[in-house]
Design a protein around this nucleic acid. Structure first.
Lengths: 241, 241
DNA sequence: TTCATAAATGATCATTTTGTCAATTATGAT
DNA sequence: ATCATAATTGACAAAATGATCATTTATGAA
């Protein structure tokens, strides 16, 4: 065990202090690590963890082959780090985003739309999400836990009329993943498929709002109210320091 | 191109004729091919196509390594054959099963429940389904096409009140896959997780009926009717020759 | 039984991939 | 400037994998 792979990158530099607080060497190290993670995300989103070779990652990251093992013990290790970064960080970001929203229905609408918008903006991220979205880790921890908790809260508050919390949880999660998949597929649709999609009303604005509305209806809101909530302006994500 | 890999196994032996109609050699060949496919399904469902080596497949199938290439040109080839067998054959089976059902809502309820029941009965099949269920091939052809067609039919017949056929399609498909995932995860739940599941009403009968009911509600049926349709007895699958 | 054909088999080789390591380079304190 | 430490690097050996092929075995007709 040459290196226990620190659990989190955790840039501890206090935002208030001078920018020179972090030594150059440390930053260099952080950056190559970040480059490796980014390259791994891009490749693994497309071909899966097993489908990419380590030298592919280092070449895509423009980093010497040996450097890989300075940061990760193995392919499995970088994959783990990737899961943590992608899912937990995103969950935390969502938490901050809806911190001040009182209505559970709106919380869910915002989370759903934000997820879909990000998947649209960063297709690689979206691909990774749908590839790993059904894994036990995501379902049980992070995003899954959060969603299940919100649904139960909504039921307790009589905001949702669903009788079957687990099934609602499953339906909402599955719908989000499938919507991402649809968006990614349709985003690059060509030929005869494009015509069918146009007939189904797939346009430039994406599926975010429509998915949120459908999900709120699934949870028991009336169609009109679901539509209304799904159209409310999104809170802006604060530019992270 | 040493061998074009026959498009389908297609055991043409007429069930009525004597059992000796098929020469032993042909049957032997069919059987090793089937063994290879079964082993590949089991392994690829767990580790993905790229994650399994050919010798793993042949060893799991208890077949000589070289035999692999008597039946498939490459790993991609057996993967293709697997996709065909799993998705298209299942789609055809569903078609036969609902051939005589007039009500679109019941057609969908039956398909959903049959899919979930089979995934429960054959977890490996289910795992493969959720792993590949978002691939373009499944969405566009086979099961996806079928589902989209049924939804549009239901809307045209004013059986479904959905205003957004594409979103409904996405939601139904995603819900089915997520339900399979949940079933597989929960089927092997241990420890503290089990308590939470019990609280959510996860019992032995599985999620099939509940998923079907939720899906029919998503399509616009009233909860009570959705429940009723989702509980109707399933048509028995005819024992195939 | 004999024989031609089809299928199965594992040894073999080329290529890919992994993991290690000594050498090189960058960093930051003295 | 000097030096100890940390990080990066690519060459290398070992292991894994893909694919080929001559040989063996099974099959079924003559």
């Amino acid at each position: 065990m040459p290196k226990p792979t620190p659990k989190r990158a955790a840039a501890k530099a206090p935002a208030t202090a001078a920018a020179e607080r972090e030594p150059r060497g440390a930053r260099r190290k952080r950056e190559t690590r970040a480059r490796l993670l980014e390259a791994a995300l891009r490749l693994m989103a497309r071909k899966g963890m097993e489908g990419v070779a380590i030298n592919e990652i280092t070449e895509a990251a423009d980093v010497g082959f040996g450097s890989f093992y300075n940061h990760f013990e193995s392919k499995e290790a970088i994959y783990e780090a990737l899961m943590d970064q992608v899912f937990e960080d995103f969950g935390d970001a969502l938490d901050i985003l809806v911190r001040d929203i009182a209505d559970v229905a709106e919380v869910i609408a915002i989370c759903v739309r934000h997820t879909l918008l990000r998947a649209r903006r960063e297709p690689i991220w979206g691909q990774f999400l749908i590839r790993e979205g059904f894994s036990a880790r995501v379902l049980e921890r992070g995003l899954g836990q959060r969603l299940l908790r919100d649904i139960q809260k909504g039921i307790a508050a009589r905001r949702f009329t669903t009788k079957d919390p687990l099934m609602s949880f499953v339906a909402v999660g599955g719908t989000v993943l499938a919507a991402i998949s649809a968006e990614l597929q349709f985003g690059s649709a060509q030929g005869p498929q494009a015509a069918m999609l146009a007939a189904l009303g797939v346009s430039g604005e994406g599926l975010a709002g429509r998915a949120a509305a459908a999900i709120l209806q699934t949870l028991g809101l009336a169609p009109k109210e679901a539509e209304a909530i799904a159209r409310r302006p999104l809170p802006v994500v604060e530019a992270g320091g």
